[in-house]
Design a protein around this nucleic acid. Structure first.
Length: 428
RNA sequence: GGAGGGGUGGCAGAGUGGUUGAAUGCACCGGUCUUGAAAACCGGCAAGGGUUAGCGCCCUUCGUGGGUUCAAAUCCCACCCCCUCCGCCA
C-alpha cells in the first residue's frame, strides 16, 4: 500500500509514477474524496471532543449534587450528530482505502519503461547454451524415457497441470530442494524455516495477493477462510506482520522449501505442455527483512544468492530487469532469472527477485525500531525464488541430457543422489 | 471434544463505570555523581491518525466485533487466540 501522506501531499507525482506502469489513478476523484474526508473528519473529532468534555462535566456536576438533566439532553443531541458524522466518515474512509488497496507500488526510478516482457532489459548473462550433436529433447520426452514423469497419471488423480514424479527423477527433485536449502543456510546466512501452507486472508493481504488477485489463489471456505499459499513469500514475510523488530536483528534472512499452489486462472492455453506451469510446484524461497537504507543492497545480494544456485548447477542463465509494465503489483523493482532450456531453445523464468520497499510493510504494519530516532518505522521487504524446484528440475534434465536419453546429474547434487552420476532411461 | 485460567504500552505486570492513556518494575534516552565505568539519584519515554508554518491542540486504541450508558480497560453478548488438566491422535 502506498503512503496515504504521500497521496495527500504529492498526488500528481504518484499519479505520473503509476502511469509509468500502466495504472490509471483517477486523481480528481481521489483528491475530491480526500477533501471531503478532511472536513468531515475534523467535524467528527470536534463533536467527539465536545461529547467527552460534556460527559466529564456531568460527572463533576453529579459529584457536586447539581441537577444534570439539561446536560444530559445536550449530550444526547451531540450523540446524534456524532453518529451521523461518523457514519459518513467511515464511508469515505472505506472508499479511500479501497482505492489505495487497488494501487500498485511505485516503480523504482531506474526501471526501463515498457508495457510487457519485450521491454525488459538484460542486465547480464552467465554460461553458454550447450551445443548438442543431436536434436535435444524437451523434459516431457526425457521424463517419459526415464520413466520418471507421468502427466497422465497426474491428470487422472488431479486434472490438468499436475505431475507425478517417480524414481530417480523424484529423487532428483528432492535433491534439488535439499541442495538449495543447504546452500542458502550454509553459504548465504539464511535461517531455515518451516511454515504453514494454509494462511489467513490477512496474510494474503499483507503481501499483496489480496484483495486484488483472489482468482489466482486456491481458497477454502470455512471459518475462518484460508488460502493455500501461492509462494512461501506469504508466510515468511508475514512473520514480521504487526511486529516491531529490533535493529540489531536486521536484516532478517529467511529461507523455506514449500509447495506452492496457483490457480493459473489467466493462463489458459499457456505452457500447457510439461511441468513449466503447474497448479502445484515446490519452491525454495528466500526472504529478507531490512532497513530502508540497506534494502537496495540486500536486493542485489539476494539476487546473487539465487544466481549462485544456477551457477552451481552449471545452468546457463540471464538476468532481466523487468520493465515498469511487467513488474508485479507489490514490487518496486524485480530481477527475473531466466534459465536456458534446450528443449524450448529459449530462456525461461526460473526465479523472480523483488524489492517491495515499504509497500508490504505498510499493509502488514511491520516495523523496526530506528535507533537514531527511537521510533518504530516501516521495514523494507525483499524476496526471491532460490529457485523454483520444478523448473530447475526441467532445466537440469534438458541441459544435462545425452544422445541416448540419459541425463547427467550435476556434481553438486550427487551427495543427495547417493553418488549417482547419470539417470538412465528405463529399459522396459 | 470436556473442565478451568488468561489476553493491558518494547517486555513484565497493576487496574472492575467518571481528571486512567493507563500504577509499578525492566529496557531505552538524557542529566548529576565518577579518573573512567558500574551503582545510586533526578528527569524523559506508547502507537496510529487529524490539524498547524511551528509551539501545540484534538481524536482513536487495553485480543476482535457488536451492545448497555451522558460516560467502558472496567458491565453484557458473540468470536478469535494462548495456558493448565483430561480425552483423542501423526
Amino acid at each position: 500500500m502506498l503512503d496515504p501522506q504521500l497521496l495527500r501531499n504529492d498526488l500528481e507525482r504518484v499519479t505520473s509514477a503509476l502511469a509509468r506502469r500502466g495504472y490509471h489513478l483517477d486523481m480528481e476523484s481521489y483528491a475530491a474524496l480526500e477533501a471531503r474526508r478532511k472536513s468531515i473528519q475534523v467535524r467528527t473529532e470536534e463533536l467527539q471532543n465536545l461529547r467527552n468534555v460534556r460527559s466529564k462535566s456531568i460527572g463533576q456536576a453529579k459529584a457536586r449534587g447539581e441537577d444534570i438533566e439539561p446536560l444530559l439532553a445536550e449530550v444526547a443531541q451531540i450523540g446524534e450528530d456524532l453518529k451521523q458524522a461518523r457514519q459518513e466518515l467511515d464511508g469515505i474512509r472505506a472508499e479511500l482505502e479501497h482505492m489505495r488497496l487497488d494501487m500498485p507500488n511505485l516503480p523504482a526510478e531506474d526501471l526501463p519503461d515498457g508495457a510487457d516482457e519485450d521491454d525488459n532489459r538484460e542486465v547480464r548473462r552467465w554460461g553458454e547454451p550447450g551445443q548438442f550433436d543431436f536434436e535435444p529433447r524437451d523434459h516431457v520426452e526425457l521424463g517419459s524415457l526415464l520413466g520418471g514423469i507421468d502427466f497422465d497419471a497426474a491428470a487422472r488423480l488431479a486434472g490438468s497441470r499436475f505431475a507425478v514424479l517417480g524414481g530417480g527423477v523424484a529423487r532428483l527433485h528432492r535433491a534439488l530442494a535439499q541442495f538449495m536449502l543447504d546452500l542458502h543456510t550454509r553459504e548465504h546466512g539464511y535461517r531455515e524455516m518451516y511454515v504453514p501452507y494454509l494462511v489467513l486472508e490477512s496474510a494474503m493481504r499483507g503481501t499483496g495477493q489480496l484483495p486484488k488477485f483472489g482468482e489466482d489463489a486456491f481458497a477454502f471456505d470455512g471459518d475462518p477462510e484460508r488460502y493455500l499459499i501461492p509462494t512461501a513469500e506469504v508466510p515468511l514475510t508475514n512473520l514480521v506482520a504487526d511486529q516491531i523488530v529490533e535493529a540489531d536483528r536486521l536484516p532478517l534472512k529467511l529461507v523455506a522449501h514449500t509447495p506452492c499452489f496457483r490457480r493459473e486462472a489467466g493462463a489458459y492455453g499457456k505452457d500447457t505442455r510439461g511441468m513449466i506451469r503447474q497448479h502445484q510446484f515446490d519452491k525454495v524461497e528466500m526472504v529478507q527483512i531490512t532497513t530502508p537504507a540497506d534494502s537496495q543492497a540486500c536486493h542485489e545480494a539476494l539476487t546473487g544468492h539465487a544466481e549462485a544456485v544456477l551457477r552451481a548447477l552449471e545452468l546457463p542463465y540471464r538476468v532481466m530487469l523487468l520493465c515498469t509494465g511487467d513488474t508485479g503489483f507489490s514490487a518496486a523493482r524485480t530481477y527475473d532469472l531466466e534459465v536456458w532450456l534446450p528443449g524450448q531453445q529459449a530462456y525461461r523464468e526460473i526465479s523472480s527477485c523483488s524489492t517491495f520497499t515499504d509497500f508490504q510493510a505498510r499493509r502488514m504494519q511491520a516495523r523496526w525500531r530506528n535507533p537514531d530516532t527511537g521510533k518504530p518505522e516501516l521495514v523494507h521487504t525483499i524476496n526471491g525464488s532460490g529457485l523454483a524446484v520444478g523448473r530447475t528440475l526441467v532445466a537440469v534434465l534438458e541441459n544435462g541430457q545425452q544422445r541416448d536419453g540419459s541425463v547427467r546429474v550435476p556434481e553438486v547434487l550427487r551427495p543427495w543422489m547417493g553418488g549417482l552420476e547419470t539417470l538412465q532411461p528405463e529399459s522396459t
